[in-house]
Design a protein around this nucleic acid. Structure first.
Length: 109
DNA sequence: AGTTTGACTGGAG
DNA sequence: CCTCCAGCCAAAC
């Protein structure tokens, strides 16, 4: 097992697990946050390898269009249940639900 | 080691 | 909203 691979997986899990309920992130965002801005595809592949069974809310990760994963059943239903807003076309409302790390405590005022 | 595929992205048609 | 294309990079074949 490559140590670097597990580090990448761990980083993905760490970031995704930190996403609050009702918020989402794009594959590109996750990739950039962990230091690999051009590895968006690997993030998706890694999430598939991790699986939702590991306790990681991978359903909160969608593509840049706000589109849910093409090979997933009930992801959009899950997100909606968690409070994520959806547009009429079935896409996630990125303008409202895109999570910005560090900016979530802006309501502290 | 070369080719194909994909839970990506962004733009063009 | 749809498909197609070019760029991107890792995994699978």
């Amino acid at each position: 097992m490559k140590p670097e691979a597990s580090e990448f997986i761990q980083a993905v899990k760490d970031v995704v697990s930190a996403i609050p309920v009702g918020k989402v992130l794009t594959y590109g965002d996750v990739a950039a946050l962990i230091g690999y801005p051009s590895h968006a595809r690997m993030v998706g592949h890694t999430l598939a390898a991790i699986g939702i069974d590991t306790g990681v809310p991978c359903q909160r990760v969608v593509n840049s269009q706000g589109r849910t994963a093409p090979h997933w059943h009930g992801q959009s239903a899950m997100l909606r249940k968690e409070g994520v807003l959806f547009r009429k076309n079935g896409l996630v409302d990125m303008a409202r639900c895109r999570w910005c790390p560090g900016a979530d405590y802006a309501d502290l005022s």
